[in-house]
Design a protein around this nucleic acid. Structure first.
Length: 276
DNA sequence: CGGACAACCTGGCGGC
DNA sequence: TGCCGCCAGGTTGTCC
């Protein structure tokens, strides 16, 4: 599911109900497998009694800064976070992976059908976060910086945009959207971009992601906001779609049928007329 | 560095 | 109605 806009929407939804609350523990109803970076019982013991200082986002990670540690949550494909009264039944959610009881009588719950999601507790979260590329919506992400990052890169554009160490937070939907806004073909090599191409791509990345946030994320399958509601971004996408359920997707600019190919194992959607 | 591919997991849907 | 195969918003590791 979640790319930068979806994770940002979830973070905004978590900020008020979590900030200032004390986490009382962590309950894992099923085997945790690879979900945590440390033993689940240790995580539960260590997190108990720590108060949430802030909830922010870095790339696609939800970052909850606690008194002594930082809780990182990655939703991967199907993770969901929501808050319910602590007495709500656990078995009402067949995909529940962990719940965190809070000092105000509520619980933060993490649900994940596909079990790819991750819940990490780090004293030094930079172990994970420092490997990530720049945040594309921050002021520091300038055209100059972006040009510098592209210098010497020869990768296929679509694959490069998905590389979290290149620029953080872009996923399959918004990579396709940004390339359409920038009029660039997903198979273009990064080393063929003109100065004008780079400028368009830089602003297109921001536009695509900001649109996603404005519409509160894309609920194509599993993604939900903290309150359980769907986002609206899926109704405003230019090229990204599911070819099986939407067989006649057309370019919003020129009405040409959108073409779907595979690039680096990912479904990739583009307008053959507008994107060169 | 970059591309190809398998893995991790399960659910949902199209097609037959 | 079944059952099969394929696809899915992400990431990581291996091999060439």
């Amino acid at each position: 599911m979640p790319e930068l806009p979806e994770v940002e929407t979830v973070v905004r939804g978590l900020r008020e109900p979590l900030t200032g609350r004390t986490i009382q523990g962590a309950v894992f109803p099923k085997a945790t497998g690879r979900m945590t970076n440390i033993d689940a019982a240790l995580l539960a013991a260590r997190i108990a009694g720590q108060t949430v200082q802030s909830v922010t986002r870095r790339a696609k990670y939800i970052v909850a800064t606690l008194d002594h540690d930082t809780l990182l949550i990655h939703l991967k494909m199907t993770g969901r976070l929501y808050i319910v009264p602590a007495d709500a039944q656990h078995d009402a959610d067949r995909y529940l992976r962990v719940s965190f009881p809070l000092s105000d009588g509520n619980e933060l719950r993490f649900s994940d059908a596909r079990r790819f999601g991750r819940v990490y507790l780090y004293e030094q979260p930079d172990e994970v976060l420092s490997k990530l590329g720049p945040e594309p919506l921050e002021d520091a992400f300038t055209l100059k910086q972006f040009s510098g990052l592209l210098a010497g890169r020869k990768a296929i554009l679509k694959s490069l945009l998905l590389d979290q160490t290149f620029v953080a937070g872009i996923g399959n939907i918004y990579a396709d959207e940004a390339l359409h806004i920038a009029h660039l073909h997903p198979l273009r090599s990064a080393d063929t971009l003109s100065k004008a191409d780079i400028k368009r791509l830089h602003s297109a990345i921001r536009e695509a992601l900001n649109d996603g946030i404005r519409y509160q994320g894309a609920s194509i399958q599993w993604y939900r906001q903290v309150d359980g509601s769907k986002g609206e971004s899926q109704n405003h996408l230019r090229v990204y779609h599911d070819p099986r359920s939407e067989k006649d997707k057309r370019c919003p600019t020129c009405n040409t049928p959108i073409v779907t190919i595979r690039v680096g194992q990912r479904g990739t959607h583009f307008c053959p007329t507008c994107q060169k």
